[in-house]
């Protein structure tokens, strides 16, 4: 409400006016927030893979190996971003929709969507509305496969934040959905994916 707006702003100004001096904005170097590396890696991709595993995510760089994992999990029916389906050409035994059918939301067991970036220091996958063909495809199925271009792996969070642009919905996903609400016991797969996969490709 406009009157609430005015009241709040004048209360803020009344609260701040008497301050003899105000704290300046600290100028902090990016290195400040970069975490110590967990080891030595010869590429960002290797670091990303290590950190993703640490966050109980799964890393693949081969489509047939990934397909074998899905089949072994009994995960046959899934959704795939139409621009990524060519990756799965020639793969037998999977049933993949490229149009997300809302009525099958509880039937899809995997969803394949595009990641905008990866963060090497934490194994994080960055999803955006621009690159994610549909939000539910990345969220509803038990297994989410984010297809990540190797060149889009950035070293740390500040570098990922620099890539925000004007996208209205950006998600950093680090490993599977989880909770420890019940007696502090870690359970993976609450509302979102129970298995988070990154399929790293180089093109």
């Amino acid at each position: 409400m406009s009157s609430d707006r005015e009241t709040i702003f004048s209360a803020i100004r009344a609260a701040l006016d008497p301050l003899p001096k105000r704290t300046a904005k600290p100028d902090w170097p990016t290195e400040l927030v970069i975490s110590n590396p967990s080891g030595t890696f010869d590429s960002l991709k290797a670091q990303f893979a290590d950190r993703l595993a640490f966050a109980s995510g799964r890393y693949y760089d081969s489509v047939p190996v990934l397909a074998d994992f899905l089949k072994a999990e009994g995960s046959i029916l899934g959704y795939c971003d139409p621009t990524l389906i060519s990756l799965f050409e020639g793969i037998e035994g999977l049933e993949i929709d490229t149009d997300f059918d809302d009525s099958k939301i509880n039937d899809y067991t995997f969803g394949i969507t595009r990641a905008t970036a990866g963060v090497a220091e934490s194994g994080t996958i960055m999803l955006t509305d621009t690159d994610t063909s549909c939000r539910l495809g990345a969220l509803a199925p038990w297994i989410h496969i984010a297809v990540l271009n190797e060149a889009d792996i950035v070293p740390h969070f500040p570098a990922a934040i620099e890539r925000f642009g004007d996208d209205p919905s950006i998600i950093f996903a680090t490993g599977p959905s989880k909770t420890a609400d019940v007696e502090g016991i870690l359970i993976e797969g609450v509302h979102g994916p129970g298995i988070q996969i990154a399929l790293v490709i180089s093109k």
Binding site: S35, F54, F164, S169, I170, F172, A173, T174, K178
Partner: peptide, 11 residues
């Protein structure tokens, strides 16, 4: 190290 989801929503 980081929470599983950090969402940045602007509109």
């Amino acid at each position: 190290q980081v929470t599983v989801y950090n969402q940045f929503i602007s509109g």
